[in-house]
Amino acid sequence: MADSILSYITLAMILFSIGFLGVISRKNIFIVYMSIELMLNSVNLIFVSMGRYYESIQPQVIALMIIAIAAAEAAVFLSLIVVMYRRKRTLNSDLFTSLSQKDSNE
């Protein structure tokens, strides 16, 4: 079972679907963020399994790049969440409609 690439791809697709369902079904902004992270991880799994299949090291380098981009995204996303929570006192992603600094006096 662990000898075929199809089982790894199946696992990655299951994880990607779970992440996608998390993005579309939850309103808690933290869980939306974590679902995005889960989707990035499943894409990493596809890259690494294809790299093992073709015995090439390049997909692992791409996976490392994805991890670095996820780290940058984490910093910006979490600071945005902190600003929004300070301003609106909620975690509901439907209410996070304004990114502007100017018209935030409500």
Binding site: M34, N41, G51, R52, A75
Partner: peptide, 27 residues
């Protein structure tokens, strides 16, 4: 662990140190 099964020991370490250790801890 699955990365380790796929002969990617460096990504195994990066996944634990960077993802579980840094990103999720920040979260």
């Amino acid at each position: 662990g699955i990365f380790a099964l796929l002969s990617a020991p460096f990504l195994f370490m990066v996944q634990i140190i960077l993802y579980a250790g840094a990103i999720i801890t920040l979260l």
